[in-house]
Computed example of a mutant assay.
Amino acid sequence: MPEGKIIKALSGFYYVLDGHQIIQCRGRGVFRKNKITPLVGDSVVYQAENEREGYIMEVYERKNELIRPPIANVDQAILVFSAKEPDFSSILLDRFLVIIESNEINPIICITKMDLLTDEERLKLSDYVNDYRKIGYEITLSSSKTEEGLDKLLPHIKGKISVFAGQSGVGKSSLLNAIKPDLELKTSHISSHLGRGKHTTRHVELIDIENGLVADTPGFSALEFDTLEAEYLSNCFPEMAALRNDCKFRGCLHLNEPKCAVKDAVANEEIPRYRYDHYLQFLQEIKDRKPRY
């Protein structure tokens, strides 16, 4: 049977790319029975009914997957955050980073709308940028309007499967339109009343850009740590994970334990205080999470 990759999922149909042709497929009932939902990015086996239609018969094992946005087998996540409108949020960025790190996906941070900042605001933002770069994160500063930073972002896209993700209204679709103008993706302005953007992207779809596949995804403003365990959380903070073996106690949660290398690093300003505060907040959320049955 032929094989391909799902590049779009919409209204119960899965669009499978096989070479240069796209087959519109439905999932067989066995998927519903086994509680398997095909995702964009899945490598699948399909049975063709004709040249344009068919059924997905099998979904190959995934190397990773995300729930929101629903996508599988990505090489990297480009986390798009605006410098302004809405204002840059380090705690929201850290939420995204934890989710991406927990799925063992390589994150790249892209801060958009740099053209909206004053010199003073740029200087303030640079403190955060320097912190995240010191941790080891790749960061690009960009503007869809002035095309600042697009040349630095493009090399990351080539030959990779990337998911663009971020809060609504940060300019993901505008950024992709600036990179590839013929996409003509819908965009929306920020609501002055709510201070956030509308969801202009309604579904997940892989788009061919620079010989890579890029997923433009629906934006969202909340992330829960549904499956992440408290003991694993610090592994999603690279600067804390690097000190794991220096703590006195194995399994140290970096709370009240004596001779904790992470707390020492925070005290010595080697780890940003806000990153540690975010870790503590996330840890408490995980501990307060209702048990799953």
Score class of each variant (00 low, 15 high):
Ser143His: 11
Leu92Lys: 06
Leu123Ile: 01
Ile286Met: 09
Gly27Phe: 07
Ser89Lys: 06
Glu184Gln: 14
Cys247Trp: 12
Gly41Met: 11
Gly251Asn: 15
Asn245Glu: 15
Cys252Glu: 06
Lys152Met: 13
Asn73Asp: 09
Val16Ile: 14
Phe96Ser: 03
Ser82Cys: 08
Ile139Val: 14
Ser126Ile: 05
His193Cys: 00
Tyr276Ala: 05
Asp115Thr: 13
Gly251Asp: 08
Gln281Ser: 04
Arg273Ala: 09
Ala178Ser: 15
Glu138Phe: 04
His254Ile: 07
Asn106Cys: 11
Glu270Asp: 15
Leu176Glu: 06
Met1Cys: 02
Glu104Phe: 15
Asn106Ser: 10
Leu97Thr: 00
Ser143Phe: 03
Arg32Gln: 15
Arg62Leu: 04
Ile108Trp: 01
Asp277Gly: 01
Lys263Asp: 09
Leu185Tyr: 11
Phe164Tyr: 05
Lys84Cys: 08
Asn64Trp: 02
Ser102Trp: 00
Leu280Phe: 09
Leu97His: 01
Gln47Pro: 03
Val163Lys: 03
Asn268Glu: 14
Arg62Phe: 03
Val98Met: 09
Val214Ala: 11
Ser188Tyr: 07
Phe237Pro: 00
Ser89Asp: 13
Arg196Asp: 00
Leu283Arg: 10
Ser191Asn: 06
Gly171Met: 09
Ile67Gln: 14
Val30Ser: 12
Ile111Met: 10
Val262Gln: 01
Leu228Pro: 05
Asp115Phe: 01
Ile179Leu: 15
Gly19Asp: 00
Arg196Ser: 04
Ser90Leu: 10
Val170Thr: 03
Val80Ala: 15
Ile135Glu: 10
Ser143Thr: 08
Pro2Leu: 02
Thr217Leu: 12
Phe237Lys: 04
Ile99Asn: 12
Ser188Cys: 09
Glu138Ala: 03
Leu233His: 01
Asp288Glu: 10
Ile190Leu: 05
Gln76His: 05
Ser43Trp: 07
Tyr232Trp: 02
Ala48Asn: 07
Asn130His: 08
Val129Asp: 00
Val16Arg: 03
Val204Arg: 05
Arg202Pro: 02
Leu154Asn: 08
Thr37Trp: 13
Tyr55Asp: 04
Leu194Gln: 03
Asp264Gln: 09
Leu39Val: 12
Lys259Asp: 15
Ser43Asn: 05
Leu117Pro: 02
Ala72Phe: 10
Asp216Ser: 13
Phe88Gly: 06
Leu141Asp: 04
Glu61Tyr: 03
Gly54Leu: 01
Asn256Val: 08
Val80Leu: 08
Ile207Glu: 10
Leu243Asp: 11
Tyr128Phe: 11
Gly197Glu: 02
Tyr14Glu: 00
Phe249Val: 15
Glu224Phe: 14
Pro155His: 08
Lys259Ile: 06
Asn130Val: 03
Ile22Tyr: 01
Lys152Tyr: 11
Gly29Ile: 07
Glu269Leu: 15
Arg292Glu: 08
Leu175Gly: 07
Ser191Arg: 02
Pro2Met: 01
Pro70Phe: 14
Tyr128Val: 07
Glu269Ser: 10
Ile71Ala: 03
Gly166Thr: 02
Ala241Lys: 07
Ala48Val: 12
Ala242Pro: 03
Phe96Glu: 05
